[in-house]
Design a binder for these strands. Sequence first.
DNA 1: GGAGCAGTTGGTGCA
DNA 2: CTGCACCAACTGCTC
Length: 521
Amino acid sequence: MTTRTAVHWFRKGLRLHDNPALLEAIKHAEENKCFFRAIFIIDPNIIKFMKVGSNRWRFLAQSLVQLNENLIAINSRLYVVRGSPYTVFPDLFKLWNVSVLTFEVDTEPYSVTRDERVEKLAEKAGVKVIQKVSHTLYNVHTVVRMNGGSPPLTYQKFLSVIQLLSNPRQPLKAPDKLNDYTKPHIDSNELASKFCYDCPTIEDFGVEVTELGPCLFPGGETEALQRLDATLVRKQWICKFEKPNTSPNSLEPSTTVLSPYLKFGCLSPNLFYYKLKGIIDNNVHTKPPVSLIGQLLWREFYYVVAAMTPNFNKMEGNSICCQIPWVNNLTYLSAWKEGRTGYPFIDAIMRQLKQEGWIHHLARHAVACFLTRGDLWVSWELGQEVFEEYLLDADWALNAGNWLWLSASAFFHQFFRVYSPVAFGKKTDKNGLYIKKYVPELVRFPPEYIYEPWKAPVSFQKSVNCIIGKDYPNRIVVHEDVYKENIAKMSLAYKNKRAVHEVSLKRPSTSELHAKNKKAK
DNA sequence: GGAGCAGTTGGTGCA
DNA sequence: CTGCACCAACTGCTC
């Protein structure tokens, strides 16, 4: 009988610290004196269909390299396997004589379906499956149970629910060095097999190197922990942190940019949470929703609602989403996506997004409002797809949740509060330095015109060699006019929603119908 | 069941 | 520079 193997399957959670499922596999290997293997699966056939831009593929590739390095340091390694999980697993179960498979709970609908299928395959092969919650602070199902079976739909309600729960799990240490007997022998046959095991290069993901922007936020656990440390030394800043008071258009990020690391699980939310708590406890500090811990709890909030709401990332069939008659003008969409709406503040943000893969949260507000209820009246679902492609931190639940919010389709209802594509940015960048960085066409425009270049006299435009409508686009809509029309359309959509709601309330329930039928007889 | 209040982060104009 | 009323008026939750 060959030695058995305990396998940990990395998907998100690309880290060694605070990884309970990983520790579980290692514990099993050491207790039973069997092999341990950590795997990551890449399905070459679906890579080209995934909405992942070049910068995020690079982030993933970097994260896998660091994961492998960190595993090598504890006397192991990462085995990157190519293929579909549904064919890979039955092969590996046999080839490696697998006894245990561990992985982190993933609540995205796609992952839930995938993991259920893999669990069935494991069961068929006699492999024990162990799943652990470590991507979120709370088990989403526990939160829902505590709220009476449905997800809380306001942040404040969410806060009150988690106060009834026990504190989040304390973060766990990375595993110690593994015993030599956990390391399987790999003969040349296995290495030459279709699995190969090496970390993918960015070319393996089909990335054109020319498409890559500057690498401002390299992926990986080591990077994540360094970035966390750099944040944690700023104790006063953390204690005073208020999200609405941070700047969307500073030249360097005004917030932590830990989101990409949380998205891929290079950083544990539990570790972040308790490190922050250690700093704010015994100090005067800000509180949720605006505090830094408050931001982590927004993530939890969206994870809970997203996990429990069918079609959460769509308008149709989404029970919490206001049905709004968006018009998907593709000319508007591509102008927005490519940063040529003619509104410099909007275009600067969209170009930063495409080039660098990260934009400030309030910048996301400004461009999301502009695309949907504010100006262009294009569906939030299309904006969501663009963010999904370009953002390093693109996260299914958070992306959908925030688009629902910003388009006033759910969670947020004061649709008459519209961001001005001109005034909003001025508050924190009077001179438009941010615009000049990302929209260099306008580099010679003075503060009085930089947010509204169409107002500059033609003689001035000529003098700086930037004709509006030729060298930089004319604005595609007149904000002062369209936002008022859009508020009226929103008002109508909300009236409609109320009407539909009332009809459903008046409709007799099944039991009432039953009683009626009896009476009739 | 209805009134009152709060809601992570709007804009404008005025004191 | 800051604070405030006003704009027109949303929903969800609490009492």
